[in-house]
Design a protein around this nucleic acid. Sequence first.
DNA 1: CAGGATCCTATACGATACTG
DNA 2: CAGTATCGTATAGGATCCTG
Lengths: 118, 118
Amino acid sequence: MECETKQFRQEHKKEMRAVQDSMDVLSGKWKIPIISSICFYNKRRFSDILNDVDGISNRMLSKELKELELNKLIKRTVLDTQPVTVQYQLTEHGRTLKTIIDNLTEWGIAHRKKIIGR
Amino acid sequence: MECETKQFRQEHKKEMRAVQDSMDVLSGKWKIPIISSICFYNKRRFSDILNDVDGISNRMLSKELKELELNKLIKRTVLDTQPVTVQYQLTEHGRTLKTIIDNLTEWGIAHRKKIIGR
DNA sequence: CAGGATCCTATACGATACTG
DNA sequence: CAGTATCGTATAGGATCCTG
């Protein structure tokens, strides 16, 4: 079978690494809900996200936002208000996640029907 | 802003739940590599997958395969050999993941370029 | 060969209190 | 308001050995 050749195996390894790169960024309990919140409202402040994302603590939110920023998915802007507020928005690169999130949404709905039946 | 209405918030919550349903199934270190291995080779035995997926232990593989089967993504077949071998393949439902995996692959490549630069 | 049992570690995550 | 610090728990996952 052709897919047993070394070249095919190599291709497969590359693919797997790429998928894992994506999952490293997106997995965990909070990343996608956070991105989803910022994306949905376009611009969103720390405390707003804290409210949008059900059950998250400020410690986690702070930590996750930092990682997302490191990954260049979101942009952090300190607003000149009293007291200080901070605004988050998706970068161009962050917005490229929309397709994936849409796919995951669709699949999640189908999967729930398949497994739980509603 | 329209998106602040209650209905929109409700829609958003539904979406987030759906995405999380997907992530519950796919996240973790091994699920996608395992699916990817089975998908790539169409039919694959336990020990083959153990070899395909770099670094996984038999304990983990066994555990993950069970969960994937519970989620109706793979089918387990005991072959009548001596000693017994077991074959795994994707179900129809499991095959619907291909789009997502392809998306994640593509995005992973782009993301790596963006962050690491190669 | 395909797992199960056991033990262990590391990390994710939660709760609460505090600060510029 | 937007975090940080500290502490505690739960779960994911690793290593090794065992069995039908």
